[in-house]
Design a protein around this nucleic acid. Sequence first.
DNA 1: GCGACAG
DNA 2: ATCTTGTCGC
Length: 354
Amino acid sequence: MCYLLSYSFRNLKIKFEVPNLYYLVYGLLREIPKGKITTYGILARILGDVRASRAIGRILSKNKYPDEIPCFKVIKSDGTLGGYTSPGGISDKINRLLAEKISINGNTVRDYKKYLYTGIGERDPHVLESLRRIQDHLSRRVILLDENKKSIERIIVTDASYIDASIPEIGFGVAALIDLPLQEILAVSISITPVFFPYIPGYLAFREAPPILAAIDALKGIVPEPEVFIFDGHGILHPRKIGLAAHLGVLLNKPAIGVAKRIFVGKISSKKYFLDEKKMVSRAVTLNNVVMGYSITKGGKKEIIVSPGNKISPETALKIIISMPWSRKYPDPLYFTHLIANMIREKFLKNIMM
DNA sequence: GCGACAG
DNA sequence: ATCTTGTCGC
């Protein structure tokens, strides 16, 4: 593979690499012979998970070499053409397919299954399956018990933003050390990282860990350690109980909380807990009838979802998030960190790329 | 056909 | 998350 980001964590006896999905997908496309086609879903399954279908589309949309990398050969699983943004647009996709004797009726390939290339996947990479194994490995190391800490004084909040017009994408990570009692930002660090892994539901951590860990690393040894890390995404409220916050909590071997803006798995129970003095309402979020996290709504706005990442209980995670300063629908330190991540990206676009 | 799909 | 090449289940 032409480029890998690799991780090794001594405390975990684990070493893994984040695969370059662009390289893998473009490599698969080159295998397709003349007159044959495939679908986004088939390519996603070859990578190991049909949920990567949209990510396949996004990867193809960035192909700058339509003559060498034949992304016109990829259509939707209902037989319709899907998109094409190379110069020439969708009519170019049609013409390239016609030139390979593939029969098209309007927006649809006629009886497309007879053109499917089946040899592709003879050496299936199935990298997403390997990543699920890593997730399962990390998941077994999640601890849902509170550490014996009296009160939380310092937290690190992180966020990531991207310029996804290029290959690789450019990832901007931010880590902000915050003093909760003083409501003061003690330190901020940023990272700029190449990203070869698009967003795929269930695999967010493999995209976001590199920029976020790089930003966290930059603070290590020069500012005090925080008691808790807060990550923008789910903790254990994840199909394999190992969302971004749990993944990073285990890698860092630190208490971690996930704060997400929408539910991913689990059910928000109907029973409400009113926190009138803060104008908040909280409800338990359950997965298989086990409480794994909580929703919080403030002032009737859209809810956020809180779940433990590591070394913390759902209840303590909720308590910490509620106790933070809030002037919007979620805690101010998260908003602040998000602003920085966007500012860095905008600065970069404006001052470097132009 | 419509909504869901962490960011 | 950014800026628009999907799939599945109800």
